[in-house]
């Protein structure tokens, strides 16, 4: 198995995610691009997880590097990231919907961060 393949796939996906975040104006599409980036990271974690065993062959593991009998935590991390992504999507979509309720649009360019004059925002 050539591990460089999933790594390159992950790199390309991450790049696509960055491109999407910067290119898209619609908040939902931006969230999708963020999901792409998260999955790229997950892919790297899983790929590293599945190859670390063979990569470490012949290396005497240090005590701090080997907290559990089988050090394959990459998959666990991937699971955690998936959970985080789910939470992120939940809160993010709630914000998007609330914003849509206020503004009838989900265009990020129109979000004004520094103007706290509610009258002007709504009027």
């Amino acid at each position: 198995m050539h591990v460089v393949i999933p790594y390159v796939v992950a790199a390309l996906l991450f790049a696509l995610g960055v491109y999407g975040v910067l290119r898209r104006r619609n908040a939902i599409l931006v969230l999708m691009a963020v999901e792409l980036m998260l999955n790229a990271v997950n892919l790297i974690l899983v790929a590293a997880d599945s190859t670390i065993k063979s990569a470490l062959t012949g290396v005497q593991p240090e005590a701090w590097a080997n907290p559990v009998p089988e050090p394959r935590a990459g998959a666990i991390f991937a699971l955690f990231v998936i959970v985080l992504a789910a939470a992120e999507v939940g809160v993010g979509l709630a914000i998007v919907l609330q914003y849509y309720r206020l503004r009838r649009a989900v265009i990020l360019d129109d979000v004004e961060l520094y103007r706290h004059d509610h009258e002007r925002v709504t009027g």
Binding site: V18, V21, L22, R25, L108, D109, V111, L113, Y114
Partner: peptide, 14 residues
């Protein structure tokens, strides 16, 4: 710079 619009800020950060 802090008051930049969201996309510009995101572009700057990345």
């Amino acid at each position: 710079a802090h008051r930049m619009s969201l996309p510009a800020a995101a572009a700057a950060v990345l």
